[in-house]
Design a protein around this nucleic acid. Sequence first.
DNA 1: GAAAAAGTGGGAAAATGTGTCATTTTATGT
DNA 2: ACATAAAATGACACATTTTCCCACTTTTTC
Lengths: 168, 168
Amino acid sequence: MPQLLGEYDCKIDAKGRLRLPAALLKQLHAFGSPDYVINRGMTPYLTLFPKSVWEHESAKVKALNGYIERNQAFKRYFYRGATPLEPDSADRILLPKSLIEYAGIKKTVIIQGMDDRVEIWDKEAYLNDINQEPADFRKLAEDTWTSVSTPPPAPPNPYNPPPGHVLP
Amino acid sequence: MPQLLGEYDCKIDAKGRLRLPAALLKQLHAFGSPDYVINRGMTPYLTLFPKSVWEHESAKVKALNGYIERNQAFKRYFYRGATPLEPDSADRILLPKSLIEYAGIKKTVIIQGMDDRVEIWDKEAYLNDINQEPADFRKLAEDTWTSVSTPPPAPPNPYNPPPGHVLP
DNA sequence: GAAAAAGTGGGAAAATGTGTCATTTTATGT
DNA sequence: ACATAAAATGACACATTTTCCCACTTTTTC
């Protein structure tokens, strides 16, 4: 399974169109069809999924029992804003106005590959977000790995890191 | 298992390209493919991973449930700036502008082998960083080894003194 | 139905990335 | 110390990508 990586700086044109960077496009093509689904993120940013990834993701949500009110509320949230997109002949996607507004996108966005999806942030918001983290990162890392049943990253076999090794 | 070692002094050209030192290249080749992933370090420096090492690191992160916001924050922090790179025909890698800026790289960088990855520092920042250390180093070493369950490295075999033996 | 707004397509200019090579510097062996 | 080879650096030309702009079509609104 291919992996989407990279941090890209792009500008939105006056009509709200975003030209996908060539380097990212190559990676996206590895996921098959040139169709995407974009959606609101948990906080003010957007997530762009290759269609195949979205289908996989939404299949899980579809399976939730809608007669349970909390599930139904989650479903509603999950689908709120989800929009299918396909790039035009110049590899541009038109971002829905409501999502541009939600993410506070002005002119420049940062696109960050996140494995099987990409996040699209207003540049300023993105920089604020990652500049806040470092102080918290150690605690965040500990919490993250202890909340998962598996112990902290098992040292990968061939590349067993030395004792005292810390991510990343 | 190969190990990346050495401290190298290199210059970045006007386009932000870094020629990997020949001695380091040989070591990197031992990791397989000539593809890398570069990322922000915890403080203003960059980390360059052989692709295979990166894949091991990210495999653990991939498994986290992104609907838990703290997990997602961790993922984002982990991926922030991660960019795939492959050297050109002259064994140069093009450092992304955003990362050059992040690490405060001007003209000269220090590349430091760190077992399964290398750190890339702006030379000046690097010298400042290690010039701060020496006073702290003994304490740092103690803290490090007492916080780990394993004892400090056993003296290498040939010189392991027999019980009761006293060194000259 | 007319005017305005929004969406689409194309393309030129600027910016950026890439390949190649010549020159300088460093390392190595005699 | 010198000659030779290897590596590092700098410079340039070329290719690609990005951005910005304009004109046209479709949809919405009054």
